[in-house]
Design a binder for these strands. Sequence first.
DNA 1: TGTACATCAGTGAACGCGCGTTCACTGATGTAC
DNA 2: TGTACATCAGTGAACGCGCGTTCACTGATGTAC
Lengths: 217, 217
Amino acid sequence: LTPLANRLPSVSRNGRRVNRRGEGDRLREDLLTVAMSTAETQGLRRLSLRGIARQVGIAAPSVYLHFPDLDHLLAAVVEQGFDRLTIATNAAARDAADPAEELRARCRTYCSFALEHPRLYELMFQADLPLSLRDAPEQTPGRRLFDNLVAAVRRCLDVGLAPAHDDPFRLASLIWTAEHGLVLARISRPTFPWASIDALVDEMVTRMMGFASSGHE
Amino acid sequence: LTPLANRLPSVSRNGRRVNRRGEGDRLREDLLTVAMSTAETQGLRRLSLRGIARQVGIAAPSVYLHFPDLDHLLAAVVEQGFDRLTIATNAAARDAADPAEELRARCRTYCSFALEHPRLYELMFQADLPLSLRDAPEQTPGRRLFDNLVAAVRRCLDVGLAPAHDDPFRLASLIWTAEHGLVLARISRPTFPWASIDALVDEMVTRMMGFASSGHE
DNA sequence: TGTACATCAGTGAACGCGCGTTCACTGATGTAC
DNA sequence: TGTACATCAGTGAACGCGCGTTCACTGATGTAC
């Protein structure tokens, strides 16, 4: 009501400025960013709509301007997690000298990502949460990532690095689940005397694919 | 206050009788039984002290007669889960003809158990919950189970089924994490076109151990 | 045989908390006339 | 140039809920004298 207050932009108690007209979508990004980092640091159990709103600096109901409910917000986090993981593994694959090395690089990067963001990785596979994503049967998040793995396995078979009669899809299922277990076991049992993750992944891939063992003998 | 009421045993609204003197420990078993079955059917997210008390038919504070807090109750559930899994895998191992078959039988049974009790299995590996069990470093629940797996792998090496220079502990780590991932992936991605779990497990073990492949060519 | 007392197996009410969601609203800013 | 109006980007208060935990208690039953 003072002249001074009239000249200042709208500011909530947290110091956040209300977005200008037409820029309301910025809040959506802010919400995702904060949800993402909370997921990484705190895990699913500490992820709440009110908590995220608090950190962003808005009132809780403002979340509903961009997400119909909490599940859809979490689903967006999961999707973004898979996008980043896909980008990271593809980048690692590009530098590989041959298909076998590419496959190993993909798997090592996959595991590194999971172990660097353990809470996010857990959320990405938390069975019952992203309710809104379960309707899409074949478009499940991470399916693209898996398809890339199948293709990498196929390239190995094509150049004769493994028996040609093997099924790439089946082999990729075995390799994906194995690396999945490798990281989840590490996350949930941190005191177990684990060997180096990179060495374990390489050995797992080598044994699964039936590569001539290179490193470990 | 009526003569009739005096002759009846104490009964809470749920029809539960108050245990007789000296038999207070029965409530502990009831709590565990109910917590176990709730864990199996509902999962961790729906497991609450009040909910368990409600199902057992007691007042919520009565739980504190037997467990110092909710975490200790959950820890007891986890422990019981590992006990059952250990018993099941050992039973399966007894009927095996040779070490290779024993190892496969152990792994198949492990996976069957996990897939028959998916919510319980998830709880057993839920990272951050059994706070009271994390103090015991080497006595982590499931360690006995893992030791059995190492021994089974060692027997395979001893009879020459796999290269003798391989390390049983390392191989067991790879096999355990692989089967762990196999079941968790199935639980969290039920719509994925999975192959038969028994066939996948057998193939995984065969490839990991370097057995002469018997079934799949 | 009777009675005071201790113990056991619980209970009922209350606490403060954070949660997801709803509702009607507000204040700034652009637009039409 | 001025002004009414629509729209945008949010807010504040309130709802009902279930939760874990605390506290002082109760009622039956066994035991000592």
